[in-house]
Deep mutational scan, measured.
Amino acid sequence: GNAVQEIMIPASKAGLVIGKGGETIKQLQERAGVKMVMIQDGPQNTGADKPLRITGDPYKVQQAKEMVLELIRD
Protein backbone atom coordinates (compact mmCIF):
# COMPACT_ATOMS: atom_id res chain seq x y z
CA GLY A 1 0.00 0.00 0.00
CA ASN A 2 0.89 3.65 -0.20
CA ALA A 3 2.34 5.67 2.62
CA VAL A 4 1.98 9.42 2.89
CA GLN A 5 4.34 11.58 4.92
CA GLU A 6 4.61 15.32 5.23
CA ILE A 7 7.77 17.14 6.23
CA MET A 8 7.82 20.83 7.01
CA ILE A 9 10.27 22.67 4.79
CA PRO A 10 11.45 26.08 6.01
CA ALA A 11 10.37 28.74 3.51
CA SER A 12 14.01 29.68 2.98
CA LYS A 13 14.78 26.13 1.80
CA ALA A 14 11.69 25.50 -0.32
CA GLY A 15 13.43 26.79 -3.44
CA LEU A 16 16.32 24.45 -2.77
CA VAL A 17 14.04 21.41 -2.67
CA ILE A 18 12.10 22.40 -5.79
CA GLY A 19 15.11 23.56 -7.77
CA LYS A 20 15.26 25.60 -10.95
CA GLY A 21 12.03 25.00 -12.85
CA GLY A 22 11.25 22.03 -10.61
CA GLU A 23 14.37 20.13 -11.62
CA THR A 24 15.46 19.09 -8.13
CA ILE A 25 12.11 17.84 -6.91
CA LYS A 26 11.75 15.92 -10.18
CA GLN A 27 15.13 14.24 -9.70
CA LEU A 28 14.36 13.42 -6.07
CA GLN A 29 11.11 11.77 -7.13
CA GLU A 30 12.85 9.73 -9.81
CA ARG A 31 15.69 8.69 -7.52
CA ALA A 32 13.43 7.73 -4.64
CA GLY A 33 10.56 6.37 -6.75
CA VAL A 34 7.96 8.45 -4.92
CA LYS A 35 5.61 11.32 -5.62
CA MET A 36 6.40 14.67 -3.98
CA VAL A 37 4.20 17.73 -3.80
CA MET A 38 5.11 21.01 -2.14
CA ILE A 39 1.93 22.37 -0.59
CA GLN A 40 1.84 26.07 -1.42
CA ASP A 41 -0.55 27.82 0.94
CA GLY A 42 -1.30 30.98 -0.97
CA PRO A 43 0.82 34.11 -1.26
CA GLN A 44 0.09 35.55 2.20
CA ASN A 45 2.03 32.68 3.69
CA THR A 46 5.41 33.09 2.03
CA GLY A 47 7.44 33.24 5.24
CA ALA A 48 5.88 30.11 6.72
CA ASP A 49 7.16 26.55 6.56
CA LYS A 50 5.78 24.62 3.61
CA PRO A 51 4.64 21.02 3.94
CA LEU A 52 6.22 18.65 1.45
CA ARG A 53 3.96 15.67 0.89
CA ILE A 54 5.68 12.42 -0.06
CA THR A 55 3.57 9.53 -1.32
CA GLY A 56 4.63 6.01 -2.25
CA ASP A 57 5.89 2.71 -0.94
CA PRO A 58 6.53 3.11 2.83
CA TYR A 59 10.21 2.17 2.54
CA LYS A 60 10.76 4.52 -0.39
CA VAL A 61 8.91 7.34 1.35
CA GLN A 62 11.31 6.95 4.27
CA GLN A 63 14.30 7.05 1.91
CA ALA A 64 12.92 10.12 0.16
CA LYS A 65 12.42 11.85 3.49
CA GLU A 66 16.06 11.24 4.43
CA MET A 67 17.18 12.62 1.06
CA VAL A 68 15.17 15.80 1.52
CA LEU A 69 16.30 16.29 5.12
CA GLU A 70 19.90 15.82 3.97
CA LEU A 71 19.35 18.45 1.28
CA ILE A 72 17.97 21.10 3.63
CA ARG A 73 20.46 20.50 6.44
CA ASP A 74 22.73 23.47 6.93
Results as ranks from 00 to 15, higher is better:
Val37Arg: 12
Asp41Leu: 07
Asn45Gly: 13
Asn2Ala: 15
Gln62Ile: 07
Val68Leu: 05
Lys35Phe: 03
Gly1Phe: 11
Gln5Gly: 10
Lys20Arg: 08
Thr24Pro: 04
Thr24Phe: 06
Ile7Lys: 01
Gly15Gln: 11
Lys35Ile: 05
Gly47Trp: 05
Glu70Pro: 03
Gly15Thr: 07
Lys65Gly: 07
Tyr59Phe: 13
Glu70Val: 03
Leu52Cys: 04
Pro43Glu: 12
Thr46Phe: 07
Asp57Met: 05
Gln5Pro: 01
Gly21Pro: 02
Ile25Lys: 02
Lys60Trp: 03
Arg53Phe: 06
Val61Lys: 00
Lys50Arg: 13
Ile7Ser: 00
Ser12Met: 08
Val68Lys: 02
Gly42Cys: 10
Gln27Lys: 14
Lys13Thr: 04
Lys20Pro: 11
Glu70Ser: 06
Gly1Asn: 08
Lys20Val: 11
Thr55Met: 13
Ala11Leu: 07
Thr46Gln: 12
Ala14Asp: 06
Leu52Ser: 00
Met8Tyr: 05
Ala11Ile: 07
Ala32Thr: 14
Gln40Arg: 09
Pro10Ile: 00
Leu16Thr: 09
Gln29Thr: 03
Ala11Asp: 12
Ile18Lys: 06
Ala11Phe: 05
Thr24Leu: 06
Pro58Gln: 08
Lys65Asn: 05
Met36Glu: 01
Met67Leu: 09
Ala11Gly: 06
Ala64Ser: 04
Pro43Met: 12
Leu69Asp: 14
Pro58Ile: 11
Ala48Asp: 15
Ile72Gln: 03
Glu66Val: 08
Glu70Gln: 08
Ile25Trp: 04
Gly15Val: 11
Glu66Tyr: 05
Arg31Phe: 05
Gln44Glu: 09
Gly15Pro: 05
Lys13Pro: 01
Glu23Trp: 07
Gly42Phe: 08
Glu70Tyr: 04
Glu30Asp: 11
Asn2Arg: 14
Arg31Thr: 10
Val61His: 00
Pro51Leu: 09
Pro43Gln: 09
Ala11Val: 08
Lys13Trp: 03
Lys20Trp: 04
Lys13Glu: 05
Ala64Pro: 01
Thr24Lys: 13
Glu30Arg: 14
Asn45Arg: 12
Pro43Lys: 15
Arg73Trp: 11
Lys65His: 09
Gln5Lys: 14
Leu16Asn: 06
Tyr59Ala: 14
Glu6Lys: 05
Pro58Cys: 06
Ala14Gln: 14
Gln44His: 15
Gly56Ala: 00
Ala64Cys: 06
Thr46Leu: 10
Ser12Cys: 05
Thr24Asp: 04
Ala32His: 14
Ala64Asp: 01
Val37Cys: 14
Lys50Tyr: 14
Gln27Pro: 02
Asp74Trp: 03
Ser12Asn: 13
Met8Lys: 09
Leu71Met: 11
Asp49Phe: 07
Val61Arg: 01
Thr24Arg: 12
Lys13Val: 07
Lys65Asp: 02
Pro51Ile: 07
Asp49Ala: 11
Ala32Tyr: 12
Ala64Lys: 01
Lys20Asp: 15
Val37Lys: 15
Lys35Pro: 02
Asn2Pro: 11
Ile72Met: 12
Thr55Asn: 05
Glu66Phe: 04
Glu70Asn: 05
Gln40Phe: 11
Ala14Tyr: 10
Arg31Asp: 11
Pro10Gln: 02
Val17Gly: 01
Val4Gly: 05
Leu16Ala: 11
Val68Gly: 02
Gly56Trp: 00
Ile9Cys: 02
Lys35Trp: 03
Lys60Phe: 03
Ala3Tyr: 15
Val4Ile: 15
Ile9Gly: 00
Gln29Ser: 11
Val68Phe: 01
Lys65Leu: 04
Gly19His: 02
Gly19Gln: 03
Arg53Lys: 11
Glu70Phe: 03
Asp41Gly: 12
Asp49His: 12
Ala11Ser: 10
Gly33Ala: 04
Gly21Tyr: 08
Leu16Arg: 07
Pro43Tyr: 13
Ile9Ser: 00
Lys26Arg: 12
Met8Trp: 04
Val68Tyr: 01
Gly47Pro: 06
Met36Gly: 01
Asp41Ser: 10
Gly22Gln: 08
Leu52Glu: 00
Gly56Arg: 00
Met36Thr: 01
Lys13Met: 06
Glu6Gly: 03
Asp49Met: 06
Gln5Cys: 13
Gln5Tyr: 13
Tyr59Gly: 14
Val61Asp: 00
Ile72Thr: 08
Ala64Gln: 01
Val34Thr: 03
Gly21Thr: 09
Leu52Ala: 01
Met8Asn: 08
Asp57Asn: 07
Leu16Met: 12
Leu28Ala: 02
Ile39Phe: 15
Val4Tyr: 12
Lys20His: 10
Ile18Val: 12
Pro43Ala: 14
Gly33Cys: 05
Gly19Ala: 03
Thr55Val: 10
Ile39Ala: 10
Glu23Pro: 02
Gln63Ala: 12
Ile54Trp: 00
Leu69Arg: 14
Gly33Glu: 07
Asp74Ala: 07
Val4Gln: 14
Asn2Leu: 15
Lys65Cys: 06
Glu23His: 15
Gln40Tyr: 10
Pro43Phe: 08
Ala32Leu: 12
Leu71Thr: 08
Arg53Met: 11
Gly1Arg: 04
Glu66Ile: 04
Gln5Glu: 15
Arg73Asp: 15
Val17His: 01
Ile9Val: 14
Ile25Cys: 03
Gly22Lys: 05
Asp57Ile: 10
Glu30Met: 14
Gly15Ser: 10
Glu23Thr: 15
Ala3Gln: 15
Asp49Arg: 05
Gly19Leu: 01
Arg31Leu: 05
Asp49Tyr: 12
Ile25Glu: 01
